[in-house]
Amino acid sequence: MSAVPTEISAVKPAGGFRAFLGDPMGLFGLTIAVLLILSALFAPWIAPYDPAALDVPAKLQGPSAAHWLGTDELGRDVLSRAIWGGRVALTVALVATTLSVMIGGLLGMLAAMGPRWLDYALTLGFDTVRAYPVIILALAIGPIFGGGMGVLLGLLVATSVPYYARVMRSSVIAQSSTEYVEALRAMGMGRARIVLRHILPNVIGPILIIASMDIPAYITAEAGISFLGVGVKAPATSWGLMLDQGFRYVGHTPWLVIAGGLPLILATLGFTFLGEALRDAFDPKLRRRG
């Protein structure tokens, strides 16, 4: 068992879980992600105030012992709103990622294995959806459908499905031209079995890692679309809505918009570092994706 595949080649194994634990940025990301998830899960117990409780006399205050992140224009506690907003952000990110990967992966596999006309049709469909700039489409479609979390999710999923579908399609096609797949075809194995039993285990890992790295993008999209007033709606709370309110008082109390942005920055940075570390530890080849 002394097989050295090529003489001059650096064999750099993926380090797996241990490598991940040795990465300080990854641990930083993991800590933030865990804290955010916990605070989202236990928001009703953690948040010091009811996020919707008005206290107009105490409006637009800076940070204090009573209100760590101050209060907004209606005197609501910004910290409590941030905690509840995290709940919305994480729900949107999680649901959108899961649905997009599942639907996209399925369509991508269909395009790769199905008859040629289906591949053409699906690819053209993916290209069509990708032709819309997402935020601008949301701005137009959101109001027509009345906005809200359902429309927001539908929009995010619909516009990211083609992305995962294309990744899945090209990975399956790349695997299909390998010799091991040809060997399976030569023994008379059907396409479905080849893809599900042999190709899928080789492509699913990278796609899941890509998906985990896209979580901050969904958090950003939710906040952005809600900021524009066509996403999550009051009485629900969203980091984007907090930014929007803060921005209205930017000339009067800049603190409000600064505080409104903090949880968003923390979350996107934390999840990004986590995703990067996961990728480096489990699939360094994906680095190429940039």
Binding site: T178, E179, Y180, A183, A186, N202
Partner: peptide, 23 residues
């Protein structure tokens, strides 16, 4: 064809590359 593929087997060029990597 299916019956025929039971009677002929093919060995491909690349020794390791013609085996399924995750099985």
């Amino acid at each position: 064809w299916q019956a025929a593929r039971g009677e002929v087997s093919m060995m491909f060029q690349d020794p390791a590359g013609s085996l399924s990597p995750r099985r």
